[in-house]
Design a protein around this nucleic acid. Structure first.
Length: 425
RNA sequence: GGAAAGGUGCUAGAGUGGUUGAAUAGGACGGUCUCGAAAACCGUUGUAGGGGCAACCUUACCGAGGGUUCGAAUCCCUCCCUUUCCGCCA
């Protein structure tokens, strides 16, 4: 959520920022409603103040034996007026809230201006030793490999639940679990995160806090009977750990890493890039979330990206880094890097991680603050999160990049102690 | 699922219609004392909105939302949550 004060004080800045993000210009509307709102507050506060004064006087008058009938009648009218004005005021506030909830975050000045994904900027490419984009043999894709080696069974997954619910079998299941454990351990041992295992069903407030609702509501599963949402990412429960809290300056940065399954309806995205693991309703992800002081958040973003990269380098998976342009940034993000891993069979890059700085956008929504020792005043902190990483897309790259001409899979060295086997055949 | 109790400030815990933003205790912070510390004593210790250059003024908030009233933490209604006991169960 954007700060109304920012809009009030820097309308042109906000206007340009929204334009860069391909978003609707709501500045004039917000300013108008905000002005009305403040006028109403002025008015009601004055009346309430009067009411409070008179109400304090009444018991004294009664004690002195004075007649209060007239005064009571008069105050009744004042109270009625307050009730009416309060209703109008609340309507204005709801309008304002509604506009702001649907308005995306502004991007950081270091983000390239652009309309679509075409204008994202590749900032880095990392290829393992001996890697080549040219193949000596025609690589099988992950679906063919999964079927041949009996490690992935998309048909039966469909039978059990529907399309987009992958079933891992045998060494495939073990490999998946190994990958999750490896990533968690790596972040814990090398990057200083604390592990969390969050609830997978969350309430509406939590979904609002991180910005999935109301804008992305259609893409979320909902268990209506209990009003609970299966999480689309562990970002939701983990960020909401500190909802409505004031942290101390000393404890920042707070860094969490957690594994969870993720559920996405992917409404309306059928057809394109939807086979196998490319687009699924349920997948596994290790997520990193940070709560940091505002002045450090962009340094923390670079570190966050590095944390994700370390995993890929350890696994020897070829990847590249994209700095998203303003138009391709997600709703809540101020700056974001995507990490894409290479799929030799698809012959293209696949997004496996997204690392974002939300600045105070989520913190304002979820009311997460910290108290500076110097000023003693509560202040919104900055939140960041990044996948570290999502397993399904990563699994595509691992399977395809480690296949032998015979169609076997060599398990990456760092995973072998987790799997207990070195080869899948 | 059945029954009961309860939700108040950083915490514990009073308060059942009128200077109560809220007693008291603990914690934290500052001070006195001390070579230093402890103890003791004194003081400070909410958040948000609005107005003002500022000192400051003002409004709201005692789980959430409604209602009664000139006036609600206190009375009434609805909802949510927590705890305990019973049942069921991984």
């Amino acid at each position: 959520m954007l700060d109304v004060k920012l809009i009030r004080e820097n309308p042109e800045l906000v206007r340009q920022g929204l334009l860069n993000k391909n978003a609707k210009d709501i500045v004039s509307e917000v300013l108008a409603v905000d002005e009305e709102r403040r006028q109403l507050i002025l008015r009601t506060d004055e009346l309430k103040s009067k009411r409070n004064q008179v109400s304090a006087k009444i018991p004294q008058m009664k004690k002195a034996g004075e007649d209060t009938t007239l005064l009571l009648a008069e105050m009744k009218l004042v109270s009625d007026e307050i009730t009416q004005l309060d209703i109008t005021l609340r309507e204005k506030e709801e309008v304002l809230e509604e506009i702001l909830r649907y308005t995306p975050n502004l991007s950081h000045s270091s983000v390239p201006v652009g309309k679509t994904a075409e204008e994202n900027v590749e900032t880095k490419q990392w290829l393992p030793e001996g890697f080549s984009f040219e193949n000596d043999f025609k690589p099988l894709d992950h679906i063919q490999l999964g079927k041949k080696l009996k490690i992935l069974d998309f048909e039966r997954g469909t039978k059990i639940s529907g399309s987009g619910f992958p079933l891992y079998i045998g060494k495939g299941a073990t490999l998946e679990r190994a990958l999750i454990n490896f990533m968690l351990d790596y972040h814990l041992q090398h990057h200083g995160y604390s592990e969390v295992m969050p609830p997978i069903l969350v309430n509406r407030e939590s979904m609002k806090g991180t910005g999935q609702i109301p804008k992305m509501e259609e893409d979320m599963y909902l268990i209506e009977k209990d009003g609970l949402y299966p999480i689309p990412t562990a970002e939701v429960p983990i960020t909401n750990i500190h909802r409505d809290e004031i942290l101390t300056e000393k404890e920042l940065p707070v860094k969490y890493v957690g594994y969870s399954p993720c559920f996405r309806r992917e409404a309306g995205s059928y057809g394109k890039d939807s086979k196998g693991f490319l687009r699924v309703h349920q997948f596994n992800k290790v997520e990193m979330v940070k709560f940091v002081k505002p002045e450090t958040s962009y340094d923390e973003l670079e570190l966050l990206v590095k944390d994700a990269e370390d995993i890929l380098q350890a696994l020897k998976v070829p990847y590249r880094l994209l700095l998203l342009c303003t138009g391709d940034l997600s709703f809540s993000a101020a700056k974001c890097y995507d990490i894409e891993t290479w799929s030799p069979a698809e012959n293209k890059w696949l997004e496996a991680s997204s690392c974002s700085n939300f600045e105070a956008f989520q913190a304002r929504r979820a009311n997460i603050r910290f108290r500076r020792e110097e000023t003693k005043k509560p202040e919104y902190l900055h939140t960041l999160n990044g996948s570290g990483l999502a397993t399904s897309r990563l699994m595509i790259s691992i399977l395809e990049n480690n296949q032998t001409p015979e169609g076997k899979i060599v398990v990456p060295k760092v995973l072998q102690k987790y799997t207990g086997f070195e080869i899948i055949d």
